[in-house]
């Protein structure tokens, strides 16, 4: 075991893993985290806690994760390269490990241009691949990035994100290979709406044998409305929403939108589950956490395995 996390155990035992996402509040309210924790507990194996997603200031991922740990729900903290240099990242991760956090997702981070502090300075001391390498070396070599020894090393189950829908498409599987080489244990993909393109990407991933080296969790997200579908299609870089999906949302009208959004999500889960090399799903329903249990139930994922050992 690399970290001994629940997520790691579930995957190692060969179960199909289910993770969700929790957005910390734009404020210091611990209650919000507690409430969302209650909503997600028992229906997923672990929960991603975003790190100032879209460059909007929110409660820190590690602090929010500590609340989850205290309530018995396993967090996957996120760490981006945007806001911290290698000194701050290593320091925060030592702290996170000391707080009992065992899963970590390494991200490049969205540019601050579209956040709520577009005038800020960004860092990008490391890129996500260098970040992964640094964290793997901290865990497996007991070394800081500078080469100095760590007495008690942080032990994380290390993940990364990958977006099969951004460009250049031919390079996307190779980029995942780089992350695998750098040292990840699992990967969560960008939200899949275009299953056909996703399957094509998985084909390239299998050709490189990456599905045997890391656990691949397909990202999915329920749509709430036609507006959201259209916004994602045209305004979110690297998001691919096919017209069929939008048509399905249009067909049910306003009243049926949320239900159809859930149905589409379950359908996509069924489809990606059949793709060889997919080890789980990651359900992203930030600010709509209450929808997750229904989706998980409908997809037949309940009860979640009790990881032993």
């Amino acid at each position: 075991m690399k970290s001994g996390s629940n997520l790691e155990k579930v995957l190692e035992a060969g179960h199909f893993a289910v993770t969700a996402e929790l957005g910390p509040p734009k404020g210091a309210d611990a209650e919000v985290i507690s409430k969302k924790t209650d909503i997600l507990k028992d229906c997923v194996d672990a929960v991603n806690i975003t790190d100032c997603q879209t460059a909007v200031v929110r409660m820190s991922s590690i602090a929010a994760a500590a609340i989850l740990v205290s309530k018995g729900l396993e967090p996957i903290i996120q760490m981006t390269c945007r806001d911290r240099n290698r000194i701050a990242i290593q320091s925060d991760l030592l702290g996170a490990s000391a707080l009992g956090i065992k899963n970590l997702l390494c991200l490049t981070g969205d540019h601050q241009k579209f956040g709520n502090h577009p005038q800020s300075k960004n860092v990008f001391d490391l890129d996500s691949i260098q970040l992964i390498k640094m964290i793997k070396d901290m865990r497996d070599e007991k070394k800081f990035q500078c080469g100095e020894e760590i007495e008690v090393e942080p032990r994380f189950f290390v993940g990364a994100a990958e977006n099969p829908f951004s460009d250049p498409f031919e390079y996307r599987a190779l980029r995942l290979a780089k992350k695998v080489e750098a040292g990840i244990d699992f990967v969560q993909t960008q939200i899949v709406y275009n299953v056909e393109k996703f399957a094509k990407w998985m084909e390239m991933v299998r050709e490189l044998g990456l599905h045997k080296k890391v656990y691949i969790l397909a990202g999915v997200a329920p749509l709430k409305s036609v507006g959201m579908a259209k916004y994602m299609k045209s305004c979110v870089p690297g998001m691919d929403v096919p017209n069929e999906v939008i048509e399905r949302m249009v067909a049910v009208g306003k009243e049926g939108a949320k239900e159809e959004g859930k149905n589409i999500c379950v359908d996509i889960i069924e489809q990606v589950k059949k793709i060889k090399g997919i080890a789980g799903v990651h359900i992203m329903a930030v600010e709509w956490e209450e929808v997750v249990s229904g989706i998980v139930e409908k997809a037949g994922f309940l009860p979640r395995p009790k990881a032993s050992g």
Partner: peptide, 20 residues
């Protein structure tokens, strides 16, 4: 835009950068 050294981030689309 992010001074990355190991390839494009997930925001690269149609040859353009996620920032603009």
């Amino acid at each position: 835009s992010k001074s990355l050294l190991n390839g494009p981030c997930g925001g690269s689309q149609d040859g353009k950068c996620e920032i603009d």
